[in-house]
Amino acid sequence: MRKQDLINQIADRTGIPKVDVLVTLETMFKEVKENITKGESIYIRGFGSFYPKRRAAKIGRNIKKNIAVNIPEHYIPAFKPAKEFITEVKANCKEQVS
């Protein structure tokens, strides 16, 4: 599913114009990005948490040149689904596969 498909589904189910749904989704994505960039976590009850995950500094290898490369500490965006979400996915995926 692409973003446009999601917009179409939300608009069809709610009756809200597609333009308004697009603006709302884009604003939500922007806010999530900005808050994670600031180091803040976002928790959406029943869905999950978006948070910045710390990666420790380490030494990597460049296999082609056979040299060690220092990889500095950095942060990446991460998502942890809520228990309710995990349970629902497990239950529904079993039904679809069987």
Rank of each mutant, 00 (worst) to 15 (best):
1 M>I: 15
87 T>D: 01
94 K>V: 10
90 K>C: 06
50 F>R: 03
31 E>T: 05
90 K>P: 03
62 N>E: 01
2 R>G: 14
34 E>G: 03
76 I>Q: 10
72 P>R: 03
36 I>A: 00
24 T>A: 13
25 L>D: 01
53 K>F: 03
69 V>S: 10
83 K>A: 01
17 P>G: 09
2 R>Q: 13
36 I>D: 02
84 E>F: 05
36 I>N: 03
95 E>Q: 03
4 Q>M: 03
74 H>V: 04
78 A>T: 13
43 Y>I: 08
30 K>F: 10
12 D>T: 09
10 I>D: 04
81 P>R: 03
17 P>Q: 08
8 N>E: 15
95 E>T: 00
88 E>G: 14
35 N>A: 05
49 S>T: 06
45 R>P: 06
20 D>C: 12
4 Q>A: 06
92 N>Q: 15
29 F>A: 13
2 R>L: 14
53 K>P: 02
5 D>F: 15
83 K>P: 01
50 F>C: 01
33 K>T: 14
83 K>N: 06
2 R>P: 02
68 A>D: 12
26 E>V: 12
31 E>P: 01
21 V>H: 07
76 I>N: 09
97 V>N: 12
2 R>Y: 13
80 K>F: 07
91 A>N: 01
74 H>C: 00
9 Q>G: 14
4 Q>D: 01
38 K>C: 05
93 C>T: 15
62 N>M: 07
98 S>M: 14
84 E>R: 07
42 I>K: 05
43 Y>D: 11
62 N>D: 05
78 A>S: 15
54 R>N: 12
37 T>P: 08
77 P>I: 07
49 S>V: 00
56 A>P: 12
45 R>G: 05
54 R>C: 10
21 V>P: 00
96 Q>N: 08
34 E>S: 09
69 V>T: 11
95 E>D: 04
28 M>S: 12
43 Y>G: 03
